[in-house]
Every structure is written in structure tokens, then in C-alpha cells.
Nucleic acid binder design. Sequence first.
DNA 1: ATTAAACTAGGTATAAACACCTGATTTTCA
DNA 2: TGAAAATCAGGTGTTTATACCTAGTTTAAT
Lengths: 226, 226
Amino acid sequence: MKKINIVIADDEELFRKGIRFLLEREPNFNIIYEVENGKKLIDYISKTEEFPDIILMDLKMPEINGVEATKVIHKTHPDIKIIALTSFGSKSFITNMIDVGASSYLLKDTTPKMVIHTINEVSEKGFYYDEKVLTIIHENIISSSGKRIKSDLDKKLLSKREIDVLELICAQHTTTEIAEKLFISPRTVEGHRNNLLLKTQSKNVAGLVIYGIQKKLIEITPDFNL
Amino acid sequence: MKKINIVIADDEELFRKGIRFLLEREPNFNIIYEVENGKKLIDYISKTEEFPDIILMDLKMPEINGVEATKVIHKTHPDIKIIALTSFGSKSFITNMIDVGASSYLLKDTTPKMVIHTINEVSEKGFYYDEKVLTIIHENIISSSGKRIKSDLDKKLLSKREIDVLELICAQHTTTEIAEKLFISPRTVEGHRNNLLLKTQSKNVAGLVIYGIQKKLIEITPDFNL
DNA sequence: ATTAAACTAGGTATAAACACCTGATTTTCA
DNA sequence: TGAAAATCAGGTGTTTATACCTAGTTTAAT
């Protein structure tokens, strides 16, 4: 029987070891490598002589994340099938991963059986999506037909001034305060804020703060408990 | 040899299964139960006849999280040793867990060996902290000596209801919307929000959102650029 | 040189947030 | 059982944020 060569990419050692033991119980699986970030994974793939058939790829990894790593590896080695295995289940992540070349998407809240099944299916047929993910993809196809505007808005990057204002909003300043700091009229600040709300599709400042932190436009200290 | 009875509490099935296989290789470990949230864990502990010696507790769980579950279980069953096993490594979380009764704190980015070692140590001596965590605790003791005022304010933990409100504020809901969702008067929500502003020393919702994210009371999915 | 975008700023309104009160239940815990 | 904390909710008023407009000036790029 031809064994399936597998690489595991995840930043949590415990998770790697755990899933490794799970998969090693399958006689036709062969775990050939474990790696804790995307950079090392790309390095490994570019140098190895023994290419994996499957990469189990976490999204959240230091240095280079799973999406970037998938993009690179899929371009240079399209034969290697990549299965996203992560705890993030939002539409954007799933479609994003599939866009950049993932052959499957599994939520960590799945069963060992499903992981094994997915690996076998991807190995045989080249792709596999479970029901949850299929539903999400389906919804996305439907909604993407009528809502080009939304993604267009996403593409519109924030201007310098808007970022200035966003930073000050996140620093808990009011419109008047921001106006004083930037030497402009409060009305202008309001204008910028309204544009920010539009561009980030937020409802209020709470949304802006979350956007800023997500996009790392704003730095927050992980812990300020003195 | 007396076996150590272990319960695993984590919302990710894959992680539970993985660590279960890792631990089952140890002859003196006996995994007696797996559970995916704090509510079910508390239920189980209150009904079972076979008490665990050790609970491996994740912090991020639906329904009732690891901190709350630890608080309850430590109070009702102080003999059960609880080991926090999570990916959150911030000071506040560590000290918080120890405050509510955790006997140890492990980051998921650790080795299987360390988990096994920790379980054995906790089982024998009642507690165990690795170097990383000890350093953090130490830093915390040092800094807390001179800054009583601040830490007193920090000690004022948010109440359940306040956390409910904070979550909804971070989800960009208005006072009226929150009131409807929680089936209380908008005035009450305002009261909670004002208490939140006081307790977190914030100026406005921006500060609340940042606080929620810092303390990981709110989950935000990181952004993996498009 | 022309055009698009960014930056600026004003008018007019309403909705929401924030401040500072008070006080009545209920829960929790020593 | 008694005190403290949490939860609920109301009054009154000010400040900010948000919505929907218009429109002039500057800046950057083709």
C-alpha cells in the first residue's frame, strides 16, 4: 500500500504531538515532518527531497501565517495538497484559504475520524469539504453574486488622515479632542470618522477599535495588569 | 500503583482526543472523562461517584469558561487539583487562575513531557509551576508591592452581568439593543456600562473594547490579510 | 493639464453615550 | 441572620456620536 506522507504545521507543540499520535495509528499515514511556523515550513518544502502529499496547516502561526504559507506553497508545489486545520470558522477565513489553494478546511472542533477521512479523501480525490464548510461556501457564493459593493469597500484602504483619526479614537479621545490634536475642525474629524465607519463597515466606535486592533493599526499591550 | 484519575475539559474535540492519547501512554494515568464546556464539567463533578484527582482545564470554553468553572469546583471540591492548560499566557490570566484555585498553569505551547511531569508533580505535591510561569508570578509579586491602589482597582473583577454587557458593547450594540437582548431596562444597561467605565478606568466604549480584548473577555479573530 | 482622491469644513437633526443622582430587590457569604 | 455586593430601574441633564447633506481646496498621479 502506498503510504500518504503528511506534514503537520501548527505553533502549539502539544497539538502537533497529539494529532501526530492520532494519525500515526493509521497504517497508511506517514508523518514525515512537524513544524511550528510558516517560515520554517516553506524552508523545509524548498529543501526536502521527500515531498509530502498532505500538509495539515494551522492558520495562526508566528512569522508567516497559514494563509501566506499556503499561497506560497500552492504556487511553487501545486501537487502538495493543503488541509487547513484551525479553530477559526468564519466565512472569510474559509473562502480565503480556498482562494489561495487549500484543498480542504477543517475546524479543530472536529473528530479524529473526520480528520482521517478528510486526509484520505483529499489524497484520493484532491479535495474534500464537510457539510459545515460546504454550507458556508454555498452561502458565500449566493451572497457574493449581489454584493460586489461590500468587497469593493473592503479593498478601499484607509488614508493617512483616517488612520490618524482612528488611532486617536482608539486612544479614547473625543471628536473635539482629536480636532485639537490634529489642528483641524471637529467637522473634519467627523467626516473622517464617518468614512472610517463606512470603509470598515462598522456600526460605531466599538467596531472601529476592533478593526484597528485586527489590522494591527493599533498596538495593544497583551496585558496591563500591574 | 495508584492510578491518577484525570478529566480533560477543552472545547476542541481534536485537542481532547490528542492529549488523551498522549496521556494514555502513561501507565499510571487514567483518563476518566472528557468534556467540552465548563457547565457540563460542573454537572459531571456534582454527580459522579468517581472523583478525578486532576482536571486539565482550558480557559476558553463556551457556556461557562475555565476560570468560572475552576472557581466553582475549587470551592466545592478543594481536593481536586486543577491544571490550567491554555494558549493564553498573559499575567492577568495566570494570576487570576491561581487566585481562583488552580494548582498549575501550562501553556499549550509546551511539550507532552512537561504535561506529564506537571500532572505527576501536582498529584504528589499539590502544585507545580514551570519557570516561565514562576517568572511571571514573581514579577507580579514585585510590582504589586508598590502599587496597591492600581491592583486594588484591578482586583475588582467584573460581575457576570457586566461581562454580558461588555460583550454586547464590543459587538457594536447600542444600549437599547443590549437591553432587549438581556431582557432588562436600558437604564440598567447604562448602570452596568457606567460601572464598567469605572472599573476599567475607561473614558468611553473605545476603552471598554480594548479592555475586553486585553483581558480576553472578548474574542477577536486575528486578521490574515486578503 | 486634467482628473480622482484626499482633505477640509459647514448645516441640520436625531440617537446614543455619559454624568451624577436615588433607591428597591435579590443574591451571596461569613 | 446580617452585611455586602450584585442586579435592577428610575429622574434629569449635558455631551458625543452618528446620519445625511453640500462643497471648496489641496495633493498626487497619468
